[in-house]
Design a protein around this nucleic acid. Structure first.
Length: 450
DNA sequence: TCTGGGGTCCTAGGACCC
DNA sequence: TCTGGGGTCCTAGGACCC
């Protein structure tokens, strides 16, 4: 594919996605600061609403810092089934524009508007199409989306960033360099803190500065691949295709504990459960894998990984457990572990026909700690997580506002109601239960969450 | 009470092979 | 008998993204 004549690469990004879904479904939070993220002692912010951003709350910030900056925000744990449902509606809408849609996450995707057609699609037509898309998404989901369009992926993504929030920006063909060069290098996708610091030593602050560095010098500084691609990006060259079929390469599970753990038996039990969980996801996706990786983060945040590769792929939980536990033995855990993870890579669709399963199965009468016990050893009570949907036998549908001291406070409202009343119950009140989300079979192709 | 969880891609060094 | 160059696979770690 040569350079496009028309701005037919479209990038869509939902604004403050998780927080926006919460404000949609919780009328009392509209117009107020909302922070979605991990609520434990070591949680970080996933998404802050624009109201919370006014206080300096940002993604990836420790929740403790967010609470210090914005104590009056609503802190919510997140409702992924709801986010997935919204995402599905949005992705379906994108597919009405083109068969070629590349999801990047639940709230973000590229669309190739020129897929399978060489009809001209000038900027004005793309603008009309983009505005129609934004208003359809608003109608069907209640959320605002920002849209960018350009002749390449990089420029389309930069355009949607410039459009935020709730806007549309088209980079007219031929104007790419004018848009690109004044931007800070950090605006380029793939330029993080480390790369920015390196090029800063050459006096580079903007993309225009970057364009004055030779390819050889960038390769020298950043390595073959990164250096070369950044060189081309700085000159507005990006021929990457929009691709809808990206096979997943790895599946992993990890958990950061409320407090560091030293007890070897507990660590083994946790690794065992994680290995089982990751294998379950592997099987559900119809995959098997050859390489098992154990990840461990120490008290001081140093992170180790140990991996081992089998001669052939497996989807057998016992094989994964055995290997993961073995890899754990290679790590010195005596000073405390804050995170453990188990991953599987080297994936294939080939599923092992395990002739020995029955034999191995015979010996599983082991008394293992129950799920609750294991959770309790590692996390504070998380039965009533702020933000979660609940239903009360008398008062109907609501969401958990807060809990503690054997009490739960619930606000009774939903997307279509006015802000609702708050009531407090005993946390073991039999009339109160978590609302069931119809967990529609969302299998393999689900993009990673933010 | 600093620093999540799920991913992707890249690099460098060693083993091994031709 | 002191010296190759590629290529692939594997491991560990780092940077980056949402």
């Amino acid at each position: 594919m040569t350079t496009r004549r028309d701005p037919t690469v479209l990038h869509l990004d939902l604004d403050a996605f998780f927080a926006a879904v919460e404000q949609r479904d919780k009328p009392s939070l509209r117009g107020r600061p909302v922070v979605v993220g991990g609520l434990g002692p070591r949680g970080v912010v996933s998404t802050a609403s624009y109201e919370a951003r006014e206080y300096g709350v940002r993604s990836a910030m420790p929740i403790s810092e967010a609470r210090a900056r914005c104590p009056h925000a609503a802190y919510l744990g997140g409702r992924f089934p709801a986010y997935r449902a919204v995402s599905r509606v949005v992705m379906d809408q994108l597919h009405t524009l083109s068969p070629l849609v590349e999801p990047l996450s639940l709230d973000e995707a590229f669309v190739d508007l020129a897929a399978g057609s060489d009809a001209p699609l000038p900027a004005d037509a793309v603008r009309a199409l983009g505005e129609r898309l934004r208003s359809t998404i608003r109608e069907r989901t209640g959320l605002t989306a920002s849209v960018g369009a350009a002749t390449s992926k990089t420029l389309a993504k930069i355009a949607s960033e410039m459009a935020k929030p709730d806007g549309l920006v088209i980079v007219e063909p031929g104007r790419e360099i004018d848009v690109l060069h004044p931007l800070p290098v950090r605006a380029l996708p793939g330029v993080g803190p480390a790369t920015a610091a390196r090029v800063a030593r050459l006096g580079v602050r903007t993309v225009g500065d970057l364009a004055r560095i030779t390819e050889a010098e960038l390769i020298d500084l950043l390595g073959e691949s990164h250096g070369r691609s950044l060189f081309h990006l700085a000159h507005g060259r990006d021929e990457r295709r929009v691709s809808s079929e990206r096979a997943s390469k790895s599946i992993s599970v990890e958990d950061t504990f409320d407090r560091d753990i030293t007890d070897p038996a507990l660590l083994t039990a946790l690794v065992t459960r994680m290995a089982e969980k990751v294998t379950e996801r592997l099987v559900r996706a119809g995959h098997s894998g050859r390489t098992i990786t154990l990840k461990a983060r120490l008290h001081d945040f140093t992170t180790y990984s140990r991996s081992a590769t089998l001669p052939g792929p497996t989807d057998d939980a016992r094989a994964v457990v055995r290997l993961a536990v073995q890899l754990l033995q290679e790590i010195d855990t005596s000073n405390g572990i804050r995170l453990l993870g188990v991953g599987v890579s080297g994936l294939s669709d080939w599923v092992q026909d395990d002739l020995f399963a029955a034999v191995h199965d015979a010996g599983t009468g082991d008394p293992r700690p129950g799920e609750e016990d294991l959770d309790a050893a590692v996390h504070a009570e998380r039965r009533w997580v702020p933000g979660m949907d609940v239903v009360h036998a008398v008062h109907g549908a609501g969401w958990v506002w807060g809990s503690g001291l054997s009490r739960v406070t619930v606000r009774f409202e939903s997307a279509g109601t006015p802000p609702g009343p708050v009531r407090t119950f005993a946390s073991d009140d039999a009339d109160l239960s978590p609302a069931e989300w119809p967990e529609m079979s969302d299998e393999a192709g689900a993009p990673p969450a933010s």
